[in-house]
Amino acid sequence: MSDPETLLHGSVQVGDVLPELTVEVTPTTVVLGALASRDWRPMHHDHAFATERNGVADIFLNTPNQAAWFERFLTDWTGPRGRVGRMTFRMRDSVFPGDTMTFVGTVTATDVDSAGCGWVEVDVELRTAHDQRGDRVCSTCSARVALPTVSDDNPWSRTGDRWQP
């Protein structure tokens, strides 16, 4: 499957910028993401609970759904052969309905491990814009993603000691 969607490790350089992803966040975005991840906590679907109990502006994106958005942002760039090995993110502020959510990412490192797996490190920011709340950096993420080193390499085939995320 050496098609144009396959991003090869050797074609990536430190400083490369990933294509931005912008999403208008609605109540449905938040509720759909929470229920898709089987997160029934009320702050992700009950406005009164979120505002009166949690003391925040509205219902907000839940943690597993943010992870899924980061994954989508990364694999939009890598194509299906890209395999996320690790992601760490810090949620500094909440993402609410009405926010315009934008993901921006930059490659910070590339390497090939002792098993021959090609890795890229990417820093991602989840930024939001809103008329009243202004511009915010809501979450920051560092991800380690395996990319094929040659066109017939497949990071998904790696198991055991050959997979070092």
Partner: peptide, 9 residues
Amino acid sequence: VMTDNTIIF
């Protein structure tokens, strides 16, 4: 609330 999440796959 949750503030940080790391996932290793």
